[in-house]
């Protein structure tokens, strides 16, 4: 079947029971999206499907045939995305494992709501856990990216 990933059509052979995350990582070598809890708690596998952030570990690949999929590899391909710059500014990444998912959720939030309140950021990012507990840095990085003050 055909998947539209990061603006590129990709032909992949997919079994009916295969999940999007596995197709991305094992089939296409896009290993930025992480496998972790595999039940929709942690958000490490977050990607965008038609602009909305979803847990790719809980979406069958067959469900998203033809939809535009954006993974962390598709973010900031022309230099750093403002969110990536803000995460660097704030040293929001410690071990880094959750960061691709954090960035995709932040990206989905700012696409829908370019100037969120700090409460809205916390709410929108509640589905992305960080075991290093960088929540303060992550939240402020998202606020800075929204304010357009990142990367300076």
């Amino acid at each position: 079947m055909r998947l539209q990933i990061n603006g590129r059509p990709r032909e992949v052979e997919v079994a009916g029971h295969e999940f999007l995350l596995d197709v991305l990582r094992d089939g296409l070598g896009l290993t930025g999206s992480k496998e972790c809890c595999v039940e929709g708690e942690c958000g490490a596998c977050t990607v965008l499907v038609a602009g909305r952030n979803v847990n790719s570990c809980l979406v069958l690949a067959a469900e998203v045939e033809g939809a535009e999929i954006t993974t962390i590899e598709g973010l900031g391909r022309d230099g750093l995305h403002p969110l990536q710059a803000a995460f660097l500014d704030h040293a929001a990444a410690q071990c880094g494992f959750c960061i691709p998912g954090q960035l995709m959720s932040a990206c989905a939030l700012l696409d829908r709501n370019p100037r969120p309140t700090i409460e809205q950021v916390r709410e929108a990012m509640a589905g992305n856990l960080c075991r290093c507990a960088s929540y303060e840095q992550i939240t402020h990085a998202v606020m800075d990216a929204a304010a357009g003050t990142a990367g300076g």
Binding site: G40, N53, V54, A124, G127
Partner: peptide, 9 residues
């Protein structure tokens, strides 16, 4: 219900 990611599906 769940997180934003869950509520989107």
């Amino acid at each position: 219900v769940g997180s934003v990611q869950i509520r989107n599906r």
